[in-house]
Design a protein around this nucleic acid. Structure first.
Lengths: 337, 337
DNA sequence: TTTTTCAACGCAATCGTTTGCGGAAAAATA
DNA sequence: TATTTTTCCGCAAACGATTGCGTTGAAAAA
């Protein structure tokens, strides 16, 4: 088992008694180099398994074929499918993806951006941590001349490209469907309200109610975005004198929690209570009845965001800022009528 | 909005009328440098927001503080939780994580390894694609002197560190539990059989049967590892003259499919048919009844694998190859008695 | 006063690659 | 044969940081 200590251009040059510049040009098929030399170099390179050192290359070109992705938590289906889309097209375009999780933690988000700047990544894709309210670290990225694209949890304060789900329309359609299938009192479980996605979904929810002349009841709007919380707070709500007959949850986990609590309360789904989720994650089909939900197209979103960023990196798109809105679509399964 | 084109050590040197070497040493608190100079350098660095160029650093040190991870598909809960663990400790140790998905595709796996070698990553963590049977590309990694650690879908042919789930014991315990709670005929849905994990789980399954004097019935062993397949093949099996009263599935998706088909066939779970999954993913608690399953500790596994790799990179562990087996534990919920 | 010692810094090479420029030999033209 | 043009290649600087070694001046020792 021999160690082959990775041959360099200099080694090829030495071995062939020519200069490194010639080798470099030969490898790139430069017209100044004779075919004979090119052949010799290519053969030598193949024989000794030459692989270009992309570190040196990046340094020389002061450009790293790497993009950084900052994501709150990769274990969530939605984010991992976005990431999958990003990796897909980044790879196809010759970029590496370096992954950073903020763990929904502001400090980690800041240190992630620092690390990415230091690595001189070619670009950054980011989705905000839940409680991030200061955006200086993202300004640092822009000031360092690194293209930046936000996705999903975007940041309004900064002028960049953005790719978002059509939260408003998704929420509107979801609630409208609930109303059209007979729900009169619809509860809404939201993520923390300072997030753009929360505002948009809430607006969608409220506008749908208004359209059908249903008064918004604030006691039916809760901040709750996990299964566990949902299991805790839902029983109280179902005990209300006039309990809701429909729930619209900000994600599928939360919806699954509502479903659990509802069945536990011996109410029938969807006859007594209809439930609508958001995401269409892995667990939607595992529920019984299967969860009606709003499909988010995370994979496409990731692909689109990556494409946008790479165009920016390559200077294809100059100056203009794109604001892509990815359509959702309603998936009706068993938890709604 | 000014562009600050990232200051370098040379800039600091110029600004302070000293040499780059002095700046470098001052920044690293070298004893040869006077306190006055150090203070001046540090102030200047902070004022102009100096950030070391890690590309240059990596080139000089011929060592990249980056580890590559090759994973079949990140959208699966198990893999994304492993990845989360990896990122966690890699980050804490000052490493970046570059992500590669093989998409269960041999060619992509090969091109991933090439890219990682070219990037001169400090180390590689890998889990095999489903149908990979040629391992030359992994030998390339080792020949390039890059530490390599396999996790979960390991490769027996190569001498490296490995971190695996205790598939045998997990399967054994699962099947034993089914037997002890009264199951007489237990079906087993397996992943493709050439994978080590499949072999080990099958052995666990068979040994548990033997221990209790139950004869292995090959008609009860199927290759099936998705929800969709499970929904297709399960009805036939439930229609068999003496149908099984227990199922052991290689993952939770598959188990959820079995559960669905079983309920559809008007059989009661767990009274008529008990079902045991493997993984404890997001959907386990969404099932009704909630899925009994074998917990895999993906997050810990990722942390352990990363630690192992980094020790190898830092030369802490020389020569020896560790073979870590991560214990599973049985989670009993509603689909078993 | 002369020699030794030491603190504090600079020079230059190095990591692997690219690229503008200049130059010699070969080929084409006059 | 003399001149111009091509063809093909090498020199050296550059990207940003590190580091062995040499150098300087002043303080300490003789």
């Amino acid at each position: 088992m021999m160690k082959k200590p990775q041959i360099t251009i200099k080694d090829i040059a030495r071995g062939l008694n020519i200069s490194p510049s010639t080798v470099s040009r030969a490898l790139k098929n430069h017209p100044d180099i004779s075919q004979a030399t090119k052949d010799a170099v290519n053969k030598y390179a193949k024989d000794f398994n030459y692989k270009p050192n992309s570190l040196a290359l990046s340094l020389r070109m002061s450009k790293n074929n790497t993009i950084g992705v900052i994501v709150p938590e990769i274990i969530h289906y939605f984010f991992s499918s976005i990431l999958s889309g990003i990796e897909q097209i980044a790879n196809a375009e010759g970029f590496n993806v370096i992954l950073c999780q903020s763990d929904e933690n502001y400090e980690k988000e800041v240190s992630n951006t620092k690390a990415l700047i230091s690595t001189r990544v070619s670009g950054v894709l980011a989705s905000l941590a839940k409680y991030t309210t200061n955006y200086d670290h993202f300004h640092d990225i822009i000031d360092s001349d690194i293209p930046l694209v936000f996705f999903d949890r975007i940041c309004i304060g900064i002028n960049t490209d953005r790719v978002v789900v059509d939260d408003y329309a998704g929420a509107f359609a979801a609630v409208e469907y609930l109303i059209q299938t007979g729900c009169k009192r619809i509860a809404f479980y939201s993520s923390p309200i300072h997030l753009e996605i929360s505002k948009n979904r809430k607006n969608g929810y409220m506008d749908a109610l208004r359209k059908y002349g249903i008064k918004v009841d604030d006691t039916l709007i809760k901040v709750c975005d996990t299964r566990e919380e949902a299991i805790i707070i839902t029983p109280e709500i179902l005990d209300m004198p006039n309990r809701p007959d429909g729930f619209f949850a900000t994600n599928d986990h939360c919806a699954a929690g509502i479903l659990y609590a509802t069945k536990l309360a011996k109410l029938r789904v969807p006859q007594d209570v209809a439930i609508m989720g958001f995401s269409d994650g892995e667990l939607a089909k595992a529920c019984d009845p299967m969860l009606s939900t709003v499909e988010q197209h995370g994979y496409e979103m990731g692909k689109y965001a990556a494409k946008l960023l790479i165009d920016k990196i390559n200077g294809v798109t100059q100056g203009q800022f794109t604001n892509k809105i990815v359509k959702t679509n309603l998936i009706i399964r068993g938890t709604t009528r």
